[in-house]
Design a protein around this nucleic acid. Structure first.
Lengths: 348, 348
DNA sequence: TCCTTTTTTTAACGCGCGTAAAGTTTTTAT
DNA sequence: ATAAAAACTTTACGCGCGTTAAAAAAAGGA
């Protein structure tokens, strides 16, 4: 590009750029905050200069002087879980589209890290934060303190009373659909879960399972497997081996609390030569919840209740933007839950 | 905490904090840059004050005045791939341990996004950047320009001549181990890959496959499947269905270019009732490369060549730190490759 | 103890930009 | 054309901290 040759004059600051573009610095400053806040002709002149020289405001100087930055923090509990990676992607892009600068953080399943992230986030003076907390193992008081200082919207995983709003999935809808489907088409399922799940959704799913089973006149049967951390597949795998060995299943149906457990469960079944599915030669049906990105590729493919990804993510950012525009406070904390969509595949 | 009551006095700036701690501001400033650069007694006094009041330097003011920030950018091509999520986790933690502030970005498989990320990264004036580029679809000139301004270490995916150094895996080692294993224990494998892989590793793996096969006296047989983007499982799945339908395999062995393709391949085999593995009743053996976090839970579990995660990640950050200490330039660009470790599971 | 070395204090400037006030120019409406 | 409104320019201050130079204080050594 020939134009770049002129651009080789490296511009230090807005003062210099303003001079080169023939506009005063305060106006240029105004332009960068909102290009449409200046007269079209001056806007054109600035953008013309912007093409010739490449200059952009020093973000540190900008953020120091703005009371509120354009930063948005996105915190998820475990990024190596493709579910969160996917949702984070959506959140990121929505923030960018709205003119914000998202920063993505993963708590990696550790309370300490979550607290540290929130700590560091505070000094970034973000306009707002989208937080999917660890859940049970979160440091409630740390999050509480954080939320008092930073406009925060919780998503995916609810912690009673924390944050200005919560957007997530309706766990009852998930479980009722899967349970009803399984009972309608075969025997009622046992519920397969971790003994001490970190995620609050897990507890709600268990309760929903019990409630739906009782409503349908079946006796709930819950199988709890040991294991800590976020290696759900491993936990599901080990747990399933044990369950199969002990013949702990009362029927030919299992509903896993989440897809990652189910992935481990199916792997164990395969190893044990147990045919899973609703075909005639199958002896077990396995369903689950979440519609994990890999659920389509399990063997057999996993029947599961899908999150309304788009709506959860979309509403989360919308809510955060409202919150920000509202000065960081809502009159009352709202909880928005989206229902599941049953995805029938081969496993049940 | 009672102490926090005193801390309720909210501190605006370092000036105020310095006054409260009884130390002059320049010394306090010095402390925050390196706590050991001040006398132990003053360090103690500052830290004592730090306990009573909670203050931390304004990162924007700090970064504005520092020539080099303590920020480190980590850019991966696709974060929804657990492989990158895992490696990013390691990189993050190493950076934090070294006193830096990592920021994680995902290109989400898009060239435009990768360029935008690098663009935004530049204005963050990072001390250094760890970049795993998209590969073939990267905007070479954009990355080149970026590397000229920011100390950058490439990892995982090499682009000839770009960045101050490259750290990755030795694709030849991957493929030679899997091919040799498969030929030694059975028939020589066909090579299953995408027609136009974005990742340069894929090309190196193909070449290695051909080379090793020829060396062993077998005729290479490459199967290329269509598909774009990063939905490798889907592509592998569709491709496998086609391959199986057309009976395009010449032997009972397949080596997939990477695990995500293999996951799709195995799902397709399962659906078609093809038994995979080395047991007697199996008609196909499938191996792959990467040791994806889910490779253990495929059906059957996947025999694969594992990345030396720890060393690749570890050496990457080490190299970046050296680069930073070296003023952002190395005498010559180095390429470091780590060999694979063959992981024998059930699929081959 | 006195002198040297190290550290801290005081004072002051600069970073790049937001922002406000007052004056000037341009646009819009009458 | 003229007055009113809107946008722009000029001037200047402030943000919070890095950094420096000179002066003062503290620490270490003989």
């Amino acid at each position: 590009m020939i134009g770049r040759q002129i651009g080789m004059t490296k511009i230090k600051n807005m003062e210099e750029f303003a001079a080169l573009s023939g506009i005063s610095r305060p106006t240029v400053s105004k332009y960068f905050q909102d290009p449409d806040s200046v007269r079209p002709t001056t806007k054109a002149r600035i953008e013309e200069a912007l093409e010739r020289f490449d200059y952009r405001p020093n973000i540190y100087a900008v953020n120091q002087n703005r009371k509120l930055t354009k930063n948005i923090g996105i915190v998820v509990p475990y990024l190596a879980d493709p579910f969160f990676a996917e949702i984070a992607r959506y959140l990121e892009q929505s923030c960018i589209a709205a003119g914000y600068r998202p920063s993505l953080f993963s708590s990696h399943g550790e309370q300490k890290l979550e607290s540290e992230i929130l700590d560091g986030l505070q000094s970034m003076k973000p306009a707002g934060v989208l937080l999917a907390p660890l859940g049970r193992i979160s440091d409630r008081s740390a999050i509480e303190k954080f939320c008092a200082n930073v406009p925060t919207v919780l998503f995916d995983s609810n912690i009673e009373g924390l944050g200005a709003a919560f957007i997530g999935s309706d766990n009852f809808s998930f479980v009722s659909q899967t349970v009803e489907y399984m009972t309608r088409t075969g025997e009622p399922p046992s519920f397969f879960e971790m003994r001490t799940p970190a995620n609050p959704n897990a507890n709600k799913r268990r309760k929903a399972y019990v409630e739906v089973m009782e409503r349908l006149g079946f006796e709930p049967h819950i199988i709890k497997v040991d294991g800590k951390g976020w290696a759900f597949e491993e936990i599901g795998h080990k747990g399933a081996l044990k369950v199969l060995e002990e013949r702990a299943l009362r029927t030919d149906s299992v509903l896993c609390s989440n897809d990652r457990l189910a992935i481990g469960f199916l792997a164990a079944c395969f190893e044990q030569g147990i045919r899973v599915g609703r075909k005639e030669d199958c002896t077990l049906r396995v369903a689950s919840n979440d519609d994990h990105p890999f659920a389509k590729f399990t063997c057999p493919s996993l029947t599961t209740a899908a999150h309304d990804y788009d709506n959860v993510a979309g509403r989360s950012v919308e809510t955060l933007f409202e919150l920000i525009e509202n000065g960081g406070k809502f009159e009352s904390r709202t909880e928005t839950l989206f229902p599941a969509r049953l995805v029938l595949r081969d496993s049940a």
